Simulated assay, not measured.
Amino acid sequence: MEKNAKIYVAGHRGMVGSAIYRKLIATGYTNVITRSSSELDLRNQQDVIDFFESEKPEYVFLAAAKVGGIVANNTYRADFLYENLCIQNNVIQQAHKAGVKKLMFLGSSCIYPKLAPQPLKEEYLLTGLLEETNEPYAIAKIAGIKMADAYRAQYGCNFISVMPTNLYGYNDNYHPQNSHVLPALIRKFHEAKVNGSPEVTIWGSGSPMREFLFADDLADACYFLMQNFNEAGFVNIGTGHDLTIKDLALLIKKIIGFEGALIFDSSKPDGTPRKLMDVSKLNALGWKHKIELEEGIQLAYKDFLAKHI
């Protein structure tokens, strides 16, 4: 990507899109364009047609999506399927029509079968049934990957797809009910420390294992793959390492300085036992994560203190 190329980052206000935007600016790109959802409704076909015809971006990072936790995914099943299909259908089709040189579509780890072997290899896609609670979102993301491949096969478009693991970092969501496990624990331990609580209760047994990637590392990987990957299919992006929720909680407890006890509420669901990414394809291409978990949590906690306290 030339430094003066016109690059459109869709979803630049989210955690992922904002990290990609920061990476491009820091690397010296001078013509990065964005639109907030109030300025451009990506679900509206005519609005997207008008945008691509007037702006004519040369490169596109498609990081815009309707996202949420397990409750939102399961409650608004029709909305998650319809709106995500609309967003990606409109952007991918118009990127083709406008002659975009390259587009990157970002998926989600929920695309893999619920009972896929560990670690998750790219070829496990569509080899089994999906997790029921987030099936509509997963179906939309799988459709996006297949759509990028179909435009490559039929029209010769250089459209690629990537599949990030669990993410955290700057501009994360710390909502008490709707946030993911890592930011939820940061908030929970911080509030317990401030309030002098004797203990913190954590959902589940603490035994499920999860992998976490700092969002700025994801942005670095996305930038790297835009320069170096030009194939059908998709690439997993992660660290290739995971830890138990209990060990994650102990690490966050240490970083925040909470002195109380941990209580695990086994009456609450654990979710999938393990979701570890196989990142051998990405590593073989020449990219590896830089920010280890402890350093990343320290950075995320500083961001939480700056924006939410």
Rank of each mutant, 00 (worst) to 15 (best):
Glu123Val: 06
Gln118Ile: 07
Lys101Phe: 08
Ala116Gln: 14
Asp217Met: 03
Gln118Tyr: 05
Ala150Leu: 13
Ser267Gln: 11
Ala148Val: 02
Ala261Trp: 11
Gln88Lys: 08
Trp203Ser: 15
Leu262Ala: 06
Leu167Ser: 00
Glu39Gly: 04
Phe61Val: 00
Ala143Gln: 06
Thr165Gln: 12
His190Tyr: 09
Asn89Val: 03
Ser266Glu: 14
Lys101Val: 08
Asn195Pro: 03
Ile92Trp: 10
Ser266Arg: 07
Leu81Tyr: 06
Leu251Phe: 09
Ser179Val: 08
Pro208Thr: 04
Tyr8Cys: 02
Ala26Ile: 03
Met147Tyr: 14
Pro164Gln: 08
Leu126Cys: 10
Ala192Leu: 14
Phe212Tyr: 14
Gly107Cys: 05
Leu225Gly: 07
Val48Leu: 13
Ala300Ser: 15
His289Arg: 02
Pro57Val: 01
Asp79Leu: 05
Phe258Gln: 08
Val194His: 02
Ala219Trp: 00
Asn283Ala: 15
Asn230Asp: 15
Ala153Gly: 02
Tyr59Arg: 04
Tyr59Lys: 04
Leu126Gln: 11
Glu211Trp: 05
Ala5Lys: 01
Gly69Val: 00
Asn44Ala: 13
Asp216Pro: 02
Ile25Leu: 15
Glu122Gly: 05
Tyr155Met: 05
Gln45Ala: 10
Glu295Cys: 12
Trp287Cys: 05
Leu40Phe: 13
Lys188Val: 05
Asp220Thr: 09
Leu24Pro: 02
Ile142Val: 11
Phe105Ser: 08
Asn73Ile: 01
Leu225Phe: 09
Asp79Met: 01
Pro176Glu: 13
Glu231Ser: 12
Asp247His: 10
Ala78Gly: 09
Pro269Glu: 12
Leu282Cys: 11
Gly17Ala: 03
Lys97Asp: 14
Asn195Thr: 06
His175Cys: 07
Phe304Tyr: 15
Arg43Cys: 11
Tyr155Gln: 03
